[in-house]
Computed example of a mutant assay.
Amino acid sequence: MLLQGKQIYVKPVEESDADALLKLEVENRDFFQRFTGLREEAFYTRQGQLERIQEALESSKGDQGYLYVIGLRDTEEVIGEIMLTEVVRWNLQSCWIGYFLDQRHNGKGYMTEAVQLVVKHAFQELKFHRIEAGVMPHNLGSIKVLCKAGFHQEGIARKNVNINGQWEDHQTLAILNEEDHRSQSQVQRYNPSVIAPPIGPYTHVTKVPKGAELLVLSGQVGTDMEGGLPDDMKEQVENTLANIQRLLAAEALSADHIVKINIWAAQQVDWVHFHQVWEKFHGGKAPAMTMAYVPALAMPSIQVEIEVWAAKW
């Protein structure tokens, strides 16, 4: 995995990075010490860095933490570290983010870019819902980095972290995965792996967002805008789906809001044609659907009728 930015790249740490991390830590020892806990001398040896990397790799395998290195794209020089720690899954899906950047490269926008890359990866690939950060209030540069990356300030945690031998207050910042909110605000369709895939263009399970308003469109038939009903079954199918789209649009809805569709046909359906217009109608993942042949509908001229249930939020 390699996360490419405009000026820098971010990648998971490897054992081969031991020398580069040692150089980074030794050259920035006094600078980094102002923002971290006290470290033993062994930390500033190649063996110490190698053991640190090995522990990080084990943490990554166990989904307990992730350590990345930051490098310059033009020279591939390692100029920083960024880590996700304190991973909690289940009902929290959260972690903490921390980072260190070579003092010579502060103020160039590198860390803002690195944080943005890692946050995007953490949300999209690692499926975190919330990422938190703690910064000493006087570290305005780091707070600025996080705010530029989309974090918001939440409050002060008093004397909560031992930094360089002293208990320090920290400004708490956090960023939320907005995709989680959007997915909870939409009808979700999926096919569980516990049963075989659908045998047709429909979805097994539909989840309706909490608090949604339920709308039911009574069975629609294939009349045109003037109320005329064509004899051709294909035209009736097309007209019926077009009428449903108009009704949905009138309620500021689309096919994405559909919870369930019931289709009744009194004549044989041309499935090649139906699949074409059906795919165009739903424009993506097909909704839940029941299709049945019946002896007759309300009028002999009606060959197909479709009922729609939709959710509005």
Rank of each mutant, 00 (worst) to 15 (best):
M225G: 02
L248P: 09
P198I: 05
V272E: 12
K207I: 07
H170M: 15
Q268P: 01
K207N: 11
I244D: 02
A298D: 15
V208L: 00
A266H: 11
E251W: 00
L229S: 05
G284W: 10
R189M: 07
T290H: 10
P201D: 10
T203S: 13
D224S: 05
R182E: 14
G284F: 10
I163W: 09
A296N: 10
M225T: 07
L217K: 02
G283F: 11
R182K: 15
E251A: 10
A250D: 13
R189Q: 07
M289T: 12
W264R: 07
G211Y: 07
V221Q: 11
Q186T: 05
G165A: 02
W167C: 01
G165C: 07
A242D: 01
D256K: 15
E213I: 08
H273D: 06
D169Q: 04
H273N: 10
N160M: 05
T172V: 15
N191Q: 06
Q268M: 02
M233H: 09
W278G: 05
N262C: 14
P192W: 13
T172P: 02
I163G: 10
M299D: 09
Q245E: 06
L176G: 11
P287V: 04
A266S: 15
T203P: 04
D169G: 06
A298F: 12
N243A: 10
V237S: 02
M291C: 11
S254M: 04
V216D: 01
F274C: 03
V216M: 12
E226S: 12
G219F: 02
D169S: 09
A252P: 04
Q171S: 09
A196K: 14
D256T: 12
V272T: 12
V221F: 09
L215C: 08
Q166A: 10
R189L: 14
D270R: 05
L229M: 13
A286D: 04
I263W: 13
R182D: 12
N160T: 14
N239Y: 09
I258W: 06
K210S: 09
W271P: 00
V237Q: 12
F274D: 00
Q276A: 12
D231W: 01
P198V: 03
T223V: 14
K210Y: 09
V205H: 05
E235L: 08
H170K: 12
M225V: 12
A292L: 13
P201H: 05
M233S: 08
A242Y: 08
V187D: 11
I244M: 13
A266C: 07
R182A: 13
L176Y: 10
E238V: 01
N243D: 07
L297H: 06
Q268W: 00
W264L: 09
I163F: 06
R189W: 07
N239F: 10
T240C: 07
Y190R: 12
T172Y: 04
V194T: 14
L215H: 12
N164Q: 05
A266V: 14
I195C: 08
V194P: 00
A255R: 08
D232N: 04
Q276L: 04
G200P: 03
P198N: 08
G200A: 13
